[in-house]
């Protein structure tokens, strides 16, 4: 007979696995309920717009500042490599492509998860802990259509907008380093960028990515809040989980999406 203690790690592993699967199912269920309860978010558009304002404004500063630095670093690193091959005018293309295709959507999503995502989780978790969601239920108002869905659509709308902003500010940062600082020709910088960045392949794909990340990050944040144990500790753990899960999911999804987009 095998000793019970030998089986314990296996049991723990199995338990953790089942719990993951269970949470995935619960998350999918909430996602579905949110989709079918979305009517009100559009009929009473001001509910959603209010949330777009909160999530968007909340992440605005961090997005702009990060984008600026990311753009500048890209230009420095890019120039360093490109000039060895005598093609330093291509710096504009490099900065733009890196931002539009990868860094824009991914970094925006990571920053969004850390800033807006945690705020959403904490807010929903606290609303649950203080019985606000219960009270809403008792007033015959569905918390999913009144609280969850507007925040979901707000996140889905805000993410691509923030992404576009990130790319624009990033390119500006790259320009400031490449042209005034390093001395790359401004005409070459912009014209090469225009000639080599494709609307559909680059820009549209980048925006599609950020819409998918918007759905994932917002839904994770909402689910963690909605599912959090109604205590201070439960809410704080849920907030941490939001960041961890969102980051992993964003990076994983990025690989999947990129592989589809490249082979297209």
């Amino acid at each position: 007979m095998i000793k019970r203690s030998r089986l314990r790690p296996l049991r723990t592993l199995g338990h953790a696995f089942i719990k993951r699967i269970w949470r995935l199912g619960a998350g999918a269920r909430l996602f579905w309920l949110t989709l079918i309860s979305s009517g009100e978010s559009f009929r009473r558009l001001h509910l959603t717009i209010r949330e777009v304002y909160f999530t968007g404004v909340m992440s605005l500063i961090i997005i702009v500042v990060s984008a600026f630095f990311v753009g500048m670093v890209l230009a420095l690193q890019g120039y360093n490599t490109l000039q060895r091959y005598g093609s330093s005018e291509a710096i504009g293309v490099l900065v733009a492509l890196a931002l539009v295709r990868e860094l824009g959507p991914v970094v925006t999503a990571l920053l969004f998860a850390g800033r807006a995502g945690t705020a959403i989780t904490a807010e929903i978790g606290l609303m649950k802990a203080t019985e606000q969601l219960s009270a809403m239920e008792m007033m015959a108002v569905s918390p999913i259509s009144r609280v969850i869905a507007p925040r979901f659509w707000a996140g889905v709308i805000a993410m691509p907008v923030l992404n576009v902003l990130f790319c624009m500010v990033g390119i500006l940062g790259g320009y400031l380093v490449a042209v005034p600082l390093i001395g790359v020709d401004a005409g070459a910088f912009w014209s090469q960028m225009q000639a080599n960045v494709d609307w559909r392949l680059d820009i549209l794909n980048g925006v599609i990515k950020s819409v998918v990340f918007g759905i994932a990050c917002t839904m994770i944040a909402l689910f963690e809040g909605y599912d959090a144990p109604p205590t201070a500790e439960g809410v704080s753990r849920a907030t941490t989980r939001t960041v961890v899960t969102s980051s992993l999911v964003v990076l994983g999804l990025d690989f999947v999406l990129t592989s589809f987009m490249i082979s297209l």
Binding site: L126, M127, T130, E131, Q132, S134, A135, M136, E137, M138, M139, A140
Partner: peptide, 17 residues
Amino acid sequence: QLRRKMGMLFQHGALFT
């Protein structure tokens, strides 16, 4: 439908913060 006939005061208020 039934809840719309009821009003409930929660023990801890449960106001929307």
